[in-house]
Design a protein around this nucleic acid. Sequence first.
DNA 1: TATATTTAAGACCAAATACTCTTAAATAAA
DNA 2: TTTATTTAAGAGTATTTGGTCTTAAATATA
Lengths: 151, 151
Amino acid sequence: MVLSKACTYGILASLYVARESSRSNGYVSIGKMSEKLHISFHFLTKILQELTSAGLLTSMKGPKGGVALKRDAGKITLLDIIIAIDGMKVFTECLLGMPGCGTEKPCPVHDEWAEIREDLYETFRSKTLGETVQKIEELDLRFALPELFDR
Amino acid sequence: MVLSKACTYGILASLYVARESSRSNGYVSIGKMSEKLHISFHFLTKILQELTSAGLLTSMKGPKGGVALKRDAGKITLLDIIIAIDGMKVFTECLLGMPGCGTEKPCPVHDEWAEIREDLYETFRSKTLGETVQKIEELDLRFALPELFDR
DNA sequence: TATATTTAAGACCAAATACTCTTAAATAAA
DNA sequence: TTTATTTAAGAGTATTTGGTCTTAAATATA
Ligand code: SF4
Ligand code: SF4
């Protein structure tokens, strides 16, 4: 698996928050979100805390509390989320897991792997939450586990 | 990490076996191989057992025993090794870990991910152990952990 | 045939990841 | 100001992956 489970949940949740705030603006409840996305509340909370401390979300406690995007949805990319949760290693790690190996004395699959890694990076870097949510609405794409949130 | 540790070790070991048999033909000792590649003997043994039961290697017990390629090095691809150890899931799995999601109602990154996955598959499918070993010799590439085997 | 060598098999242990639970702190609203 | 609600923090548990160790079986060779 390229991304950790926590990271994929983080992406799905961020998209959910971006989508909700584009409608109702205000804080999005983690409890409600966890039900809609079918992700364990406590686990999701912890993941969102990472995004908050990374400066991508803000949170508020108490009734009507929850999380919200800190920047505009058009200014946060999927890459931002991934780096905050899994780190850059996703895009720098070696395919064959060799330490200290690089371009000077590469292994036989380095060139292809470096290119694929670059493609992945570019894919995430070029997608903002805003654009992605828009695409989801337009094309009726899915971004939740089995049952998509009702409406 | 795209490939499991076991899988990367399996690839490195297969290349080692292919390289050795191109010189000395006969069985390659797992003990010696584990020293040269700096991989734990017992762990390596277990991995090679998987490759043996997958029909990629043959083994022989006793003095002068070890493992050898079952088919010609030009007839075994890196993909064969990967499928034997990690399975096809490497190339079919969803980037966002969504179950039962496919092309009919895809998520916003499906197209890019499907293409990247396909590139990866093609990279491994197109590389035989034979060709790869040849490339290693010609270009003096590395395929062992820190210390490459001495000669 | 006896012995040393080597893989096979599987139990076992360790570390990382995934997930849960409890308690505390903040805050909105009654 | 009291209470209900909600996130924060961190301890605790489960599962998966990575790795070790022990014992058995095969076989070459002395
Ligand atoms: S050369 Fe191969 S082994 Fe080395 S970093 Fe690149 S992909 Fe990894
Ligand atoms: S559409 Fe997205 S979530 Fe669904 S299988 Fe493809 S990559 Fe995964």
